[in-house]
Design a protein around this nucleic acid. Sequence first.
DNA 1: CTGAAAGCGCTTACAG
DNA 2: CTGAAAGCGCTTACAG
Lengths: 357, 357
Amino acid sequence: MTRIDDVARLAGVSTATVSRALRGLPTVSAATRRRVLAAAEQLQYAVSPSASRLAGGRTGTVAVIVPRITRWFFSTVVEAVEEFLHQSGYDLLLHNLGGREQTRQRVLRTANLHKRVDAMMLVATPLRPADRAALAALDLPGVTVSSGTDVPGWPCVRIDDVAAARAATRHLLDLGHRRIAHISGDPDDELAFTAHLDRRRGYRAELRAAGLPADPSLDVESTFSIDGGHRAAAELLARGEPPTAIFAACDEMAMGALTALRDAGLRVPQDVSVIGIDDHDLSGVLGLSTVAQPAAEQGLLAARLLLDPLGGRDLAAYAAAPRPRGDADPARPAAAAPVILPTRLVVRESTAPPRAD
Amino acid sequence: MTRIDDVARLAGVSTATVSRALRGLPTVSAATRRRVLAAAEQLQYAVSPSASRLAGGRTGTVAVIVPRITRWFFSTVVEAVEEFLHQSGYDLLLHNLGGREQTRQRVLRTANLHKRVDAMMLVATPLRPADRAALAALDLPGVTVSSGTDVPGWPCVRIDDVAAARAATRHLLDLGHRRIAHISGDPDDELAFTAHLDRRRGYRAELRAAGLPADPSLDVESTFSIDGGHRAAAELLARGEPPTAIFAACDEMAMGALTALRDAGLRVPQDVSVIGIDDHDLSGVLGLSTVAQPAAEQGLLAARLLLDPLGGRDLAAYAAAPRPRGDADPARPAAAAPVILPTRLVVRESTAPPRAD
DNA sequence: CTGAAAGCGCTTACAG
DNA sequence: CTGAAAGCGCTTACAG
């Protein structure tokens, strides 16, 4: 395997100069750089990441932590993040929590990320006190996406879940619905999202604003999944007089509700209207009305905010002063101002006025 | 930051012993190990991966390369692989090709994986000659999943695509269909899968076995996506007399076909039956008949086959002899025998006998 | 703009 | 079973 010495010898310079030239540092003459690049090319030289990391202290790697990569929102976020990270010269270390407490602790509480990544992105993973302490001890830059809990010093990208839920509910109200059910997330769900809490808050607020009383029999909790939506809708129907409309906290739950309604012999939207939040890839296929949220954009923006202070593999990165450690870091955006991306009502075939009977 | 020296000092042993004790090597007395572990615990010591990799030559990392993480099959494979890798003490470096040729070359042809991972998993990514040469030069152990092309020396996990397609086609034949269309992948698709080639072969073979002539007007190509399925079905309908049944090469394409049929005012299955291959998460919701393939199982099995000769973070791993390099590696399963996992016909509401007219 | 030398923090023969 | 020492292959002050 060719090492940096081989390149140095062939180019007739020191290893220090090879190192600088290859990384594009500005303190190398054009002629020298050219010779070094040619030598490296000729020898098919590739730097050893381990050696580079040990000597330089940077890992060139970012950890991305998601609850479940198989869900629409998370795979979409990861796809956008992956592209940007690799373009910026960073590797992506993937952690899929999968709702397993053991995994959660392995990732968040042990030093598993320690000295292994330069930064981390936490997607929709609320933190417990012990998690916070562990992350603080790691002293890594990070960013959260769609998070229920902010981390001091980390930027945060999200949507306004309350507003999205209000928009969905208002759409149903505008169509003339008054018996509007809500399928929300289960607070004990192993995946532990919290977005559904805000969404339920928005649902209730919008009903209140319309002068409608809260009806607990129309407000069910279930897991954040197709199955969860199915179960919740079935339960709603079992409770007696069915609602004329269902607002599910996410499209996957709404899809489960569609099946449950079909199984019960009810037509959508003639008998019951259904709306979700997300604009899942398949919502169009299903004709599901929804409040669209920009998943890829949230991931991309978060990745940008994360790498911005770190710098990529360009001149600026190496010219920049090392990131100051500790609490007062002016380069890091303040945690106080989460970036809120807009949502948008998408009306399809699953919502219509209630039957006039 | 505590280093191995600190632990050695506290435990009253050499750094070599700390290193051995922490990794569970058998050549450490129980008493010494206990003392070292206690010291490490007390100091909250975590080994530096960069240093360990540089000195030891192992990276403890596996690269997983998928065409598009947002697609059902790939996210399902990755989820299963991620869990197994992390349980085995390996990190997962994710590469999402995304159909971009530039990305493909960056991952496959440059030394981007060089000295960065111990092994790689290639999912549904057929190789061009230049790719093969680059991978051979890397001399890394690897495994392919659902691959169109085998890599010498790498195990391979897949389904029998021909048989799956025959089963889907036979189901339609058994229902009495004779005008059976097929929506296949586009050979020029940027994602460059090749499974659809085998699936079309199976479709044609089954028709032939039933004594039906090949009808080119019923055989369309499109991209491997919901949109692709939609476009292909629309094209089929535009060609004149519609088929009584459509077999799509994957469920996502079948879903697109469902939409196109609905848009054209045709009912499924009364007017047209539809079947796919996969058993996508949402196929149940859509009532889509399909030939189910075990995605998670393929990923898990591939991960096992990959790590088996590498060894995990257990005693056996370190006791094992170093992997011999070069062509004759008895520890690696022969490429000649791909592991074929079974598929299963799942009949739902989207398939029925043709109208009797 | 360039080089000599120290150092990053481990693991691994080798010797005992 | 354990330790002293070399070495993994880079980057980074420091000096010029």
